[in-house]
Amino acid sequence: MSRQMLLRVTEVEPLTPLVTRFRFEHPERAALPLFSGGAHVVVEMPDDGVLRRNAYSLISDPYDGSGYEIAVRREDTGRGGSRFMHGQVATGTDLRVSLPLNLFALDPRAKKHVLIAGGIGITPFLAQLRQLERLQQPYELHYAARSQAEAAGLKLLPQTAQVHVHISENGDRMDPGALLEGQPIGTHAYVCGPEGLIAAVMDAGARLGWPPSALHAEAFAAPPPGEAFRVTIGSTGAEIEVGPHQSLLEALEAAEVEVDWSCRGGACGRCETGVRACHGRIEHHDHWLSPEERAAQTKIMPCMSRFRGDRLVLDL
């Protein structure tokens, strides 16, 4: 688990009907640790007896320690974290926030950076833009949104020649292949947004012969809901029920079974847990385990993955 800071919400600004910007500052105005573009923090939300923890990309200037800013899209059918932020957080609310962690960093070896965002996937790039400006590295950014009204990024993006906005209801659909074609050798591309956009960029990169190491993606995943299931704690034999909208990690935490964690999005590897016995099928939703490890069903990432079957005994 990351070190946390107790921070105060100092600004709440609706950017669109669905997306709101929050600014956090230290209550005594102490400087916060700086970070690198693409980093996220985990915000802890005490929601009526349930402790929710969601990861959000930082959108503010990485070199400005006076505050951290995030943009949260309200997901009415989600698990409740974004509803809490929209409904119960106001200026003056104190929340626990982790130190920044970056799983989507710019590659400083790149001769040029091409940033490709879809919808709320614009968030990590907002901080990366500031970093690239400060370091004076060549870049271009392409931001796709369905409509002008939903494009939260419009209020936060600088109006410069490097920033290109594609609004599909205006007939301007982003074409990932065209973006990657003709880029100079040594360019790196970064994509954040819906899975379909990520796949399109990766496919276009592969088709055009880009090295895999020059293509970077962040799927801003939240734990997927599913059917309720039950796991057994190997050391104690205790049975723990995981609800349909709960992650296994959240159920373990609620039962006070200690598991290390960091990103809560299946990317960092911290919560990797051994499986002693598996009669059924683990539904792996993480980006950490290798295909072989998944097939073996001897490890599970409780922040993201679920189980379907008779019996799953965890090495805890």
Binding site: P33, L101, G269, R270
Partner: peptide, 11 residues
């Protein structure tokens, strides 16, 4: 290596 990759700021 897994440990090192998980090292975070402030820790």
């Amino acid at each position: 290596l897994k440990f090192l990759l998980a090292v975070q700021q402030g820790q």
